[in-house]
């Protein structure tokens, strides 16, 4: 337990000093601010312009447009930034050899994985929380009638998906060696999930639904009951990925 806290602390220091915290916090802060503002401003800017002599008529933006922007930013750029920031947390240490000294001191390998997962989830949660908080505040300020359905659950789904991605990164890094092993394989995993979502029957179980139904939840066209399976399966897959990566990492030649 002590070793776990020590190594997690080291991970947090690393995030701070290798600019990971700076990047993720500031990028997510920007998304939180920009999303409602963009939703509010875009129609006004567009309607002020004339396109081939035609005035563009755009309806008054609503709170759903703001959240639409928010989830669009976070599931695209936000996820990409998350992938880039955490993609090397294990791969880099493996290929550089910085873990050798530490493991030679008797630190169990599963502790390394658990610490890395914990620290990454902490930074992801902080960044995501910041984005969601700022977005909420600005939306409340800029829009009237801000009532939406399932806001908490919708936010929770994307958060859970982020945690799942971090576990996938760790698993990928134990499978594929090299500096970008974790990054490439995780990106591949996301692509596979996107492709699988084409089949309508799979949508119910696919983790990626947690990052695609967020606005539908707010609209009320999807309910939390619709995503129960996705939540359960994503939780199980997260735990499974961690377990499997621990087994593979244990066998890895260092």
């Amino acid at each position: 337990m002590r070793a776990f806290f020590v190594f997690t602390k080291k991970e947090l220091v690393e995030q701070l000093r290798t600019y990971k915290s700076l990047i993720l916090l500031s990028v997510f802060f920007l998304f939180g601010m920009m999303s409602p503002l963009l939703a509010k401003l875009l129609p006004e800017i567009l309607s002020g312009m004339e396109l081939q002599g035609m005035k563009i008529e755009i309806p008054e933006p609503t709170v759903l447009d703001a959240y639409g922007q928010f989830f669009k930013n976070l599931t695209q750029m936000g996820l990409l930034a998350t992938l880039l920031v955490f993609g090397g947390i294990l791969s880099n240490e493996m290929s550089k050899g910085t873990l050798i000294n530490i493991l030679a001191k008797g630190l169990p390998r599963y502790t390394v994985l658990l610490s890395k997962f914990t620290a990454a989830v902490l930074l992801w949660s902080a960044s995501y929380g910041l984005a969601a908080g700022v977005n909420y505040g600005y939306t409340e300020y800029l829009f009237e009638n801000t009532a939406v359905h399932n806001l908490g659950f919708s936010l929770f789904c994307l958060w859970l998906f982020g945690c799942f991605i971090i576990a996938v990164i760790l698993l990928s890094s134990t499978i594929l060696s090299g500096n970008f092993g974790g990054l490439i394989l995780s990106a591949g995993a996301i692509v596979v999930m996107l492709i699988l979502n084409i089949f309508p029957g799979l949508e119910k179980y696919n983790p990626i639904t947690l990052a695609s139904k967020n606005v539908a939840l707010l609209l009320g066209t999807a309910t939390s009951a619709d995503l129960t399976w996705n939540v359960v399966i994503t939780c199980l897959l997260t735990l499974g990925s961690l377990l499997l990566s621990a087994i593979l990492f244990h066998r890895k030649r260092i």
Partner: peptide
């Protein structure tokens, strides 16, 4: 153990690194 080419966390000072090693071993 001293590996043939020891690698460290470049963002730490020697003192911090030894601190990390010592804390890990308790």
């Amino acid at each position: 153990y001293l590996p043939d080419v020891p690698e460290f966390y470049g963002y730490m000072t020697p003192k911090e690194y030894l601190g990390l090693c010592g804390e890990i071993t308790g």
